[in-house]
């Protein structure tokens, strides 16, 4: 398939389906409450899906290689997790995580 056709197909289909998800209970099922079993399962979508996205971005190299020594990114992610857990603030989490990463990378470069 042509690359740009493929891209636009993804944009419109994902855009439309995401919009349907967003609109679902606001408009279509406005008179109905969410089925309890579905509500249960949906509560775990962010933790599951976002963790699955985060882990490969934090581990070094191909994700099959789990490092013996914690790397700067792994440690900085843990610092950020602690700050996020305590403060619930995106900005503070971002600042803490980036500063931790830069400091740890500088430290790792010095130790060599």
């Amino acid at each position: 398939m042509d690359a740009s056709l493929k891209l636009w197909l993804v944009i419109f289909v994902v855009g439309a389906l995401n919009y349907v998800s967003r609109l679902s209970f606001i408009a279509f099922f406005a008179r109905r409450s969410i089925p309890p079993m579905l509500a249960r399962a949906l509560r775990y979508v962010p933790a599951a899906m976002l963790t699955a996205l985060i882990v490969p971005m934090v581990l070094p190299g191909p994700p099959t290689i789990v490092p013996d020594v914690p790397t700067p990114k792994v440690l900085a992610a843990l610092v950020a997790g602690g700050v996020a857990w305590l403060t619930h603030s995106t900005l503070k989490t971002l600042v803490a995580g980036m500063v931790a990463l830069w400091l740890l990378q500088a430290l790792a470069a010095r130790i060599g």
Binding site: P46, I54, W85, T90, G97, M98
Partner: peptide
């Protein structure tokens, strides 16, 4: 990943 961590860690 930091933005995602900020979203999920409180959960």
């Amino acid at each position: 990943p930091l933005c995602f961590i900020a979203l999920i860690a409180p959960h």
